[in-house]
């Protein structure tokens, strides 16, 4: 009798610990999957949403050479709250004489940041 109760207690306790361990884990986080491409000319630097998940403004950060410059990007498109396919972000602080080397788009929703994509900035192309 006592042995049975003890066995149940041990099993329940073990399972409880296991469940707590599982449940206490953060829920699987859906990191947005998207393609983006950066175009640098002698006048502008533009990041184009090239397909995949849309990003809600505030849910991501843009690091230019490791520095958060999200506020320096201006979005095209009808809805300023969502960055959709085909829409672009223009970097207002762009200096073509000193173009950045890398741009990282980091998903910040859900606590820890996850890098969605890292873009190497091409050499600016001349325009008329």
């Amino acid at each position: 009798m006592i042995g049975a109760i003890l066995l149940i207690v041990v099993v329940v306790a073990a399972m409880s610990i296991l469940m707590v361990a599982v449940i206490s884990q953060p829920q699987p986080q859906k990191v947005p999957a998207l393609d983006a491409e950066v175009t640098a000319t002698s006048t502008a630097l533009v990041i184009m949403h090239d397909g995949g998940d849309s990003l809600r403004t505030g849910d991501f950060a843009i690091l230019v050479d490791g520095v958060n410059m999200t506020s320096s990007f201006t979005k095209s498109g009808a809805d300023p709250a969502i960055w959709n396919i085909g829409e672009s972000l223009t970097f207002s602080a762009y200096n073509p004489l000193h173009p950045p080397k890398t741009i990282q788009i980091v998903y910040t929703e859900g606590g820890s940041g996850s890098t969605i994509t890292q873009l190497w900035v091409p050499t600016p192309t001349p325009t008329g």
Partner: peptide, 19 residues
Amino acid sequence: GALSEVIGFVLILGIITAA
């Protein structure tokens, strides 16, 4: 004694179902 084993088994089933 039978009851406790059934309860234990049901609990294990519940845990498995939850998982």
